[in-house]
Design a protein around this nucleic acid. Structure first.
Ligand code: MN
Ligand code: MN
Ligand code: ZN
Ligand code: ZN
Lengths: 137, 137
DNA sequence: TCCATATTTGTAATCATTACAAGAATGAAA
DNA sequence: TTTCATTCTTGTAATGATTACAAATATGGA
């Protein structure tokens, strides 16, 4: 059982019910959800939850390094509890986002051509295994 | 002088004034502009230009493989006349998008872990050379 | 308990993009 | 050259994600 309250305190974030639930959701469902997906699920548990709170919380978490914000196609931000370097693949059929942690060699450099690098993302797009299977039938 | 009419015809796109101008703009200004940036520039030349036409045209061009659509941070689509594989870097200070054509080894595989790959993007974020220079003053 | 501060909420605003329908241009057949 | 179907363009309205903002609520220490 992960101690979400401790994680929040360690990141200098006051552990409100909303924040605990949002962090719990992200750690449990590694589907790279959008703010709206998180809202729609959690409002069932917390009927008074506001979508603004979800947005604010996700912003805070990202700024404090607790999450990674992903901008992978289709103009929507997705959130990832896994802040380690890994590769993302989005299926253009079903819309699911998969992790590909292939041991691809990554940039380690802090500077490239004089620019300071703070984030590094590899995003792939295509048709996922499941959708390919359906297609072939 | 590039023959934009020929390029359009070769891609099975009827060469209207609007389409020619949009293609010309993208080939001339390699700044990875958004639809809105293109509109704001071209409406000076074509006062009747509609933003919808810009969006439609960019969609058509992308579908026909004439452009690459980039989703690099901040929820906006940018367009690139250069369809060759290269790396993008967005400065979080000034917002400019730079090309980094570093000979980074890329995926060549058509399939990864069973998923069919159709697009491959490497996006970096950080602070660009120019902004670093300004900061240090 | 009291109070300053942090957090949450709900609504309105914004920004990028898409949907849609009507008008204009095009170009081939008669 | 007229006709007419098709394609393009335009303008406005709608959508969807996100942010701004101000009021209401919760929190934790003095
Ligand atoms: Mn991930
Ligand atoms: Mn580029
Ligand atoms: Zn799929
Ligand atoms: Zn910069």
């Amino acid at each position: 059982m992960i101690d979400f309250v401790r994680i929040l305190i360690e990141h200098n974030i006051a552990p409100s019910i909303q924040r605990i639930k949002i962090l719990e959701y992200l750690s449990k469902y590694k589907t790279h959800p959008t703010a709206d997906m998180i809202y729609r699920e959690l409002v069932k548990q917390i009927p008074t939850l506001s979508k603004t709170t979800v947005y604010n919380t996700l912003k805070t978490f990202t700024e404090k390094g607790l999450l990674t914000a992903l901008a992978i196609f289709d103009n929507e931000i997705r959130y990832d509890f896994n802040t380690d370097q890994h590769i993302h693949f989005k299926c253009s059929k079903c819309g699911l986002v998969f992790d590909l942690d292939g041991s691809h060699d990554t940039f380690n450099e802090d500077f490239i051509e004089g620019h300071k690098i703070t984030e590094y993302h590899i995003n792939l797009k295509g048709i996922c295994k499941n959708c390919l299977k359906k297609e072939s039938k």
